[in-house]
């Protein structure tokens, strides 16, 4: 078991290195020169050359990469191109709090409810409850995020008359419930977005286990339905469920650009838009690495959870 976990860790590390190469080369291939961007079009060639030397841009590409990757590992993401006085780390520090609050709150509220709903749907396949839930999640899983967001705005703001269509004000000094109220609409929207996936997948995972012979055996032993699901089926479905949860958590950190823009609050994901608009490669590199790291760590956690939950690996012969 431990060797398998080590292997996964190794693969994770390889993925991070591969991504760093892709990001580094990718931003190098992009048109535009860092020194030029930083100094603007009016800069003299001498000034640009001087800055290039200072930034190490005249070194061979592999040295640049090693330097950059070394800096990244030590937490130095460099300086913003669009605003040389600003460290990328401080740009990110300004944003990560909102992202963290929204994603953690969404995960705490959304994940358990969705999993419970999905497992319940699997307990009564074909029932009215199951059909309504399945239909809703089939619908929501395919709908664009801004459709779901619009729906939330229509329901909460227009029909019920609570809250604002945009997130306004600061989070400072707010307690948990005030924070939830503050981010009510994005949290509600994201809950629906991840719920549609989680319900579908947890239902499918449990139903998949439910078709195995040992479940039939449990039925033939006269085991009550509740115990069949909770004791016999659920534990064997952990692997795929944890995997989907991890994918959705990664999405909450890295993939919510549209939601952040829609509700107008400043999160990590929409920082990438700023980076793109100002052609700030250094910012894009830093964010890319952070997103990739988040994804890799979450997927690793899911893999390890699946390994640990497998009795074959936990208790070898």
């Amino acid at each position: 078991m431990y060797s398998m976990i080590l292997k996964r860790l190794g693969i994770g590390a390889i993925t991070v290195v591969a991504v760093s190469v892709i990001i580094f080369l990718g931003t190098k291939v992009l048109p535009g020169d860092a020194a030029q961007i930083r100094l603007g079009q009016s800069a003299t060639p001498e000034a640009v050359a001087a800055l290039r030397a200072e930034l190490g841009l005249d070194l061979p590409i592999y040295q640049q990469y090693l330097q950059w990757f070394g800096n990244f590992i030590t937490g130095n993401l460099g300086q913003s191109l669009s605003n040389p006085d600003v460290q990328i780390t401080s740009l990110i520090a300004d944003r990560y709090e909102n992202t963290l609050i929204v994603s953690v709150l969404t995960a705490i509220i959304g994940v358990p409810i969705s999993l419970a709903l999905g497992v319940m749907a699997a307990m009564f396949p074909g029932s009215i409850y199951d059909r309504i839930l399945t239909f809703t999640s089939v619908t929501l899983v395919a709908a664009p995020e801004f459709f779901t967001a619009t729906l939330m705005v229509l329901i909460f703001v227009f029909a019920l008359g609570i809250g604002n269509a945009v997130v306004v004000g600061s989070t400072e000094g707010k307690d948990l419930f005030q924070l939830i109220a503050h981010f009510a609409l994005p949290i509600a929207t994201l809950c629906f977005v991840i719920a549609s996936q989680l319900i579908r997948m947890s239902r499918a995972a449990v139903l998949n286990v439910m078709s195995s012979p040992y479940i039939e055996m449990a039925i033939l032993k006269g085991v009550p339905r509740k115990r069949i699901i909770l004791r016999h089926a659920l534990f064997n479905a952990i692997g795929p469920i944890v995997n989907v949860v991890a994918l959705n958590l990664a999405y909450l950190v890295t993939g919510v650009i549209v939601i952040e823009i829609y509700f107008g609050y400043q999160g990590l994901a929409s920082l990438i838009v700023q980076g793109v608009q100002t052609r700030d490669f250094v910012l894009i590199q830093g964010l890319g690495m952070i997103f990739c790291g988040t994804y890799v760590v979450l997927m690793l956690a899911a893999d390890i959870a699946a390994i640990v939950s497998n009795p074959r690996l936990r208790h070898p012969k």
């Binding site: 993925t15 892709i22 999405y251 994901a269 997103f291 990739c292 890799v296």
Partner: peptide, 12 residues
């Protein structure tokens, strides 16, 4: 290589 690309958000 494919895994590496998959680990980056597609929108980004």
């Amino acid at each position: 290589i494919n895994d590496a690309f998959l680990s980056l958000p597609s929108i980004m």
